[in-house]
């Protein structure tokens, strides 16, 4: 029976590990390269994750869409009254901010378990760790695809036309993806080692929700507004919100967003280089 089986393995490999000369950086880069080369595995797993999460549910991931719509409608009515602002002017800001926030917060929360969730796979199969972080990023990107169209619906309903400047939101989305991957890597590892980090992340996110201009607008801060770019959530959010709502974000927010992304990715990478070999022992 096996005589008919074709060769089912990748080309010959030599696998060398020397604890005295670990070549950590080279192996981390190799892990990333291999992980991205097999992105189809990560994508398939992410799709299965979503499908399994909503097994038997009628609306499936569209529950996200529905709950986001309800949030925007409800909060829009309430806060336009509280702040005494015009609903038509307020709603586009709220819709974009709230949806992008939900994507960011959802990702950060998910990232905390992205390695521990797959401990079985990590301990049994030799796979690039990049796959697991990529899977988490894809999973949240797919969820985001169910929410982002709501922005378009709100814009259409209110007749809000951001014009060509809206295209600037695309690099903003790219920054969001890069940060998502870095967060999956970093938080995935940290939370595998220290199980207390997960709840800490949850608390930080809760606080950040109020400190970030989502329900309120940056202008309402007055003079204190200059400090806002130091809030990484604001900077990233602004690269998407700015173009869609105000015809381009402030240059300062863009610079801050790019600096934060570079820092975030740099920290995640150095952690990955240093601790990649330990992940199998942590999960």
């Amino acid at each position: 029976m096996l005589a008919t089986a074709p060769t089912l393995l990748p080309p010959p490999t030599i696998h060398v590990i020397d604890a005295n000369n670990p070549n950590l950086r080279g192996r981390a880069i190799e892990d990333l390269r291999e992980g991205f080369a097999t992105w189809r595995l990560a994508f398939t797993l992410a799709r299965l994750d979503l499908r399994n999460r909503y097994r038997g549910s009628v609306l499936g991931p569209f529950w996200f869409t529905l709950s986001a719509a309800a949030m925007i409608g409800g909060l829009g009515l309430l806060y336009s009254q509280l702040f005494k602002v015009d609903l038509v002017g307020y709603l586009p800001h709220l819709a974009v901010s709230l949806i992008v926030w939900q994507v960011m917060a959802g990702l950060a929360n998910d990232a905390t378990t992205c390695m521990t969730q797959v401990d079985g796979v990590i301990r049994q199969l030799k796979l690039p760790y990049t796959i697991h972080a990529l899977r988490c990023t894809f999973r949240n990107a797919l969820t985001a695809l169910h929410q982002l169209p709501l922005i378009l619906i709100v814009f259409l309903m209110l007749g809000h036309n951001p014009g060509w400047a809206a295209l600037l939101a695309l690099p903003g989305l790219v920054l969001l993806c890069v940060n998502g991957f870095a967060a999956s890597m970093l938080l995935g590892m940290l939370c595998a080692r220290f199980r207390d980090i997960g709840p800490i992340v949850g608390n930080v996110l809760q606080l950040a929700f109020f400190l970030t201009p989502i329900m309120w607008k940056p202008d309402q801060l007055g003079a204190v507004k200059v400090w806002l770019p130091f809030n990484p959530f604001y900077s990233i959010l602004e690269t998407i919100r700015g173009p869609l709502v105000e015809g381009g974000g402030g240059i300062l927010a863009w610079v801050a967003a790019i600096v934060f992304t570079a820092l975030h990715a740099g920290i995640a990478f150095s952690f990955f280089v240093r601790f990649r070999g330990r992940i199998a022992f942590w999960v």
Partner: peptide
């Protein structure tokens, strides 16, 4: 799957 903390390992072959 597990990387050694000390010593070395060389495996040639699929």
């Amino acid at each position: 799957i597990y990387e050694p903390v000390a010593g070395s390992l060389r495996v040639e072959g699929e």
